[in-house]
Simulated assay, not measured.
Amino acid sequence: MPFSVATWNINSVRLRMSLVERFLREHQPDVLCLQETKCPDDLFPYEAFHALGYAHIAVSGQKGYHGVATISRRPLDGVERKGFCNIVDCRHLSAVVPVGVRRLRIHNFYVPAGGDEPDPAINPKFAHKLGFLEEMKAILADTGDGCSSMLLGDLNIAPLETDVWSHKQLLKVVSHTPVETEGLEFVRHIGGWSDLIRHHITPEQKVFTWWSYRARDWDLSDRGRRLDHIWGSPDLETDLASVTVLREARGWERPSDHVPVIAHFNL
């Protein structure tokens, strides 16, 4: 059974709803996980999604900041919203989706960006990011309930050398510092997760999902980073058919600085 899941940091769902509608019409994923929706739950554009055939929606939002939403053609069961670091913000949402005879738990994450200075002693935002990673270790691929699992979203870290335009120049830049890249890889390993993007696209190839608004010509300079990730429980590796990074979406009118990433499965 063909099945697809997409992740996209939309950078305000109401501001960019026309782009979301275009994406859903053209690519029709079964499930779309959005991050940085910047929208309280009561103002979320439910009707626009319903009109496109996405009847099942779980949201965790707040005004002007953060926020995650999981939009699905299939029922969403067991919806949970987990808090991190004793801070009230909306950065996690999980739900279970039926796929044929299987059940798939999907964790939708928006990891803190961490500010500009990679020193937790002087930058509380960076300290928050490292603390968030520490608590993410509790999110396991195998919870013993028979569900396959996915963890995806804007994790705000580019772990591999080929996940950034210049490894050497970004070693001291937040999102690619060793404490972050090693920390994220440890979260993945201890949780038993497979990096499905890199399972399909070899680590030798550069892959970017984010290009800064500051670039005069983002496409020409191509100074990107892979900040958006799709992880899965190991049993999903054999079912993974392909991964699509929709680079062209960065060139759409009034775009997000992130682009959608889609994982296609035969389940």
Rank of each mutant, 00 (worst) to 15 (best):
M1F: 06
P2I: 12
P2A: 14
F3V: 01
V5L: 13
V5Q: 06
T7H: 08
N9K: 09
S12M: 08
V13N: 06
V13K: 10
M17F: 15
M17E: 07
S18I: 05
L19N: 15
V20W: 06
V20Q: 04
R25S: 12
D30A: 13
V31F: 10
L32S: 04
L34Y: 11
C39M: 08
C39I: 08
P45W: 11
Y46G: 00
F49V: 03
A51G: 09
L52I: 06
G53S: 11
Y54T: 03
H56Q: 03
A58S: 14
Q62T: 05
Q62P: 06
G64Q: 08
A69N: 10
T70K: 07
I71G: 10
R74F: 11
L76H: 07
V79T: 07
V79M: 09
R81A: 10
K82E: 10
K82R: 15
C85S: 09
N86M: 13
R91D: 03
H92Q: 13
P98C: 12
R105P: 03
I106C: 10
N108F: 13
Y110E: 01
Y110F: 11
V111F: 13
A113I: 00
E117Y: 08
P118S: 12
P120C: 04
P120S: 10
A127D: 13
K129S: 11
L130M: 14
F132M: 02
F132A: 03
L133R: 06
K137A: 02
A138Q: 13
A138S: 15
G146I: 06
C147T: 02
S149T: 14
M150S: 05
L151A: 15
L152D: 03
G153K: 04
D154H: 11
L160M: 09
E161S: 08
E161P: 07
V164E: 04
W165L: 05
Q169R: 15
L170D: 04
L170F: 00
L171R: 14
S175E: 02
H176P: 05
P178A: 10
P178M: 11
V179K: 02
V179L: 12
E180K: 01
E180I: 05
T181D: 01
L184P: 07
F186Q: 14
H189G: 01
G192V: 11
L196Q: 02
I197S: 03
H199F: 13
H199T: 04
H200W: 07
T202F: 01
P203K: 14
T209V: 09
W210L: 00
W210K: 05
W211I: 04
Y213N: 12
D217P: 08
D219L: 15
D222Y: 03
R223P: 02
R225C: 10
R225V: 00
R226N: 04
D228L: 08
D228T: 01
H229F: 05
I230L: 07
I230S: 03
G232A: 10
S233D: 01
S233N: 06
S233I: 03
P234K: 04
D239L: 15
L240K: 08
L240D: 03
V243P: 05
V243R: 05
T244A: 14
L246C: 15
R247P: 00
R250V: 13
G251T: 00
W252V: 02
E253H: 14
E253M: 02
V261W: 12
A263Y: 12
H264N: 15
H264D: 14
H264P: 00
H264I: 00
F265T: 08
F265S: 08
